[in-house]
Design a protein around this nucleic acid. Structure first.
Length: 467
RNA sequence: GUCCCCAUCGUCUAGAGGCCUAGGACACCUCCCUUUCACGGAGGCGACCGGGGUUCGAAUCCCCGUGGGGACGCCA
């Protein structure tokens, strides 16, 4: 029984997006679940489109999500010697051959086939067969190397999420495994790497289903063990449309920037296309214990930001306060708040985190504890009347001499409300506006207690000058 | 066009022939709590794509249709 090895193999042509993150998560969890190894492999053979920035973005994304790899990262560009050696061997063994077709020739071929309603594919004109005379080798065309795919029979595998899939070899053509410049192509590199790295389960997006039979054929030609395959369906945007550059295919790091906790994103992604009965909220440790491939939905899943928000709220409410503080501090920093010791940030968060589903929003809501709030004109107009300053005055008289603890402030508020025979909001709302700028907050007595006597008096007097 | 895949509430899903009068979660609505806004609690609304089979019995199995998606590169 070989040890479980999974891999995540992105190509560095862009950031780590939400679909890639889920694929990585599932591969990672599968390895964890089975006490196996998780490999990170960077598929950078498309030199024109791969960038070091994209590599870094992927690494950053994986690091933020804490999807740690046990091996790698491997870079395919550093493995050229291996690929070239194996290409030569396949040439020698008769599993591959040179093809001298020019790109123009191939384009023309494709077009004719499309017009005839056929599936466009290479016609095998340079494929060596017994009793077949190959064309004259042109002098000016550097050849590509093609894999000699079987022409009859079917390739089949039991996909761990989609079930048995069979594809006739007649549907396949001889794919190019080395370009005219000698560099190997994607399908070939994947085959060599998965084989040499001992990958036992290939978990990837289902846009690769069509590559699988080709890869299996090559694996078999090489005498390699064929891994198990699990093809994950894609993730659609909030609106049911395919995610794309200009359509919500955001980087996972964008979620970090937008105020989401990794715990929420991870939990959300885990539940997208996978389920464990009715369980909705669980830790990654729990997920790794539960995760298995046969509870993955084969159909595409639509992303739902509302549900992510709900999970984010859950984790903001339940993670250790220190953790939330670490997340909120830099966000307060962006709002110009650098000093968070007075009042104590933990106390502030304890009071405020219940009501927030987003870290940025949370930071914005508590910024007034550390800086003078802007008064919301609408709220001020609505809650401040002629008699207001008199009421406030009464309250201050009563509260002035107390120790400014929440209980005592609470009593003072109630005393004034009873004494003046007014509704509670008559007093609480103007106080809110004066202290935090808006009319929504947790219990005003608690806000005042945390804000501290000095600051409270200062802000109240700023709006209601002493007579 | 050809091949492949998919199909349960608006969304994520449970469901492996009888436990289904189809369950849970998000969202939405109502009520309760309440010092405003939230949080929380209790209810409610809401789905098996269509048609044929198979079976005593089908959301579950089979076929056809329809709809959606993917792949058909010297991209990955």
């Amino acid at each position: 029984m070989s040890v479980v090895k999974t891999r995540f193999a992105p190509s560095p042509t862009g950031y780590l997006h939400i679909g890639g993150a889920r694929t990585a998560l599932f591969s990672w969890a599968y390895a964890k679940r089975h006490g196996g190894q998780f490999i990170l492999r960077i598929e950078d053979t498309d030199v024109a489109r791969s960038t070091p920035e994209a590599v870094q973005a992927i690494l950053d994304g994986m690091a933020w999500l804490q999807l740690d790899h046990d091996e790698g990262p491997f870079y395919q560009m550093q493995r050229m010697d291996t690929y070239k050696k194996i290409i030569q061997k396949m040439l020698d063994d008769g599993h591959a051959y040179y093809c001298y077709c020019s790109k123009e020739e191939l384009d023309a071929l494709r077009e004719t086939q499309m017009q005839q309603g056929l599936k466009p594919r290479y016609d095998g004109r340079w494929r060596p067969e017994t009793d077949k005379t190959l064309p004259e080798v042109p002098q000016d065309v550097p050849p590509v190397v093609r894999f000699k795919n079987p022409t009859t029979g079917v390739v089949a595998w039991d996909d761990m999420v989609k079930g048995r899939i069979e594809i006739a070899n007649a549907e396949l053509d001889d794919l190019i495994i080395a370009r005219a410049d000698g560099t190997p192509t994607y399908n070939f590199c994947v085959v060599v790497d998965d084989w040499e790295m001992g990958v036992t389960q290939v978990i990837r997006g289902d846009d690769h289903v069509n590559n699988t039979p080709r890869q299996i054929n090559m694996l078999q030609a090489l005498g390699a063990q064929v891994p198990q395959y699990a093809h994950l369906s894609m993730i659609l945007g909030d609106d049911g449309q395919k995610l794309s550059k200009r359509h919500g295919a955001v980087s996972v790091m964008q979620y970090h920037e937008d105020g989401y906790l990794r715990e929420a994103v991870l939990n959300y992604l885990a539940r997208l296309g996978w389920s464990h009965g009715d369980d909705e909220v669980f830790s990654m440790a729990q997920f790794c214990e539960w995760f298995d491939l046969d509870h993955i939905t084969p159909s595409a899943a639509q992303f739902n930001t509302e549900k992510l928000n709900w999970l984010n709220a859950h984790y903001i409410k339940n993670l250790p306060l220190e953790r939330i503080a670490d997340e909120v501090k830099p966000r307060l920093g962006k709002l110009g708040v650098t000093e968070t010791s007075t009042p104590d940030l933990l106390a502030v968060l304890n009071l405020y985190r219940e009501r927030s589903n987003n870290l940025n929003q949370l930071a914005q809501e508590i910024a007034f504890f550390y800086q003078m709030p802007a008064i919301n004109e609408a709220d001020a107009a609505k809650h401040i009347q002629q008699e207001t300053s008199g009421i406030i005055e009464k309250f201050l008289e009563k509260a002035q001499d107390s120790d400014w603890a929440a209980d005592n402030l609470h009593d003072a508020l109630n005393f004034v409300v009873t004494e003046q025979q007014i509704k509670f909001p008559k007093l609480a709302m103007p106080l809110r506006v004066a202290l935090i700028g808006i009319a929504q907050s947790p219990s005003i007595d608690q806000v005042m207690a945390i804000l501290g006597k000095e600051t409270c008096l200062q802000r109240i007097h700023a709006l209601f000058p002493k007579k």
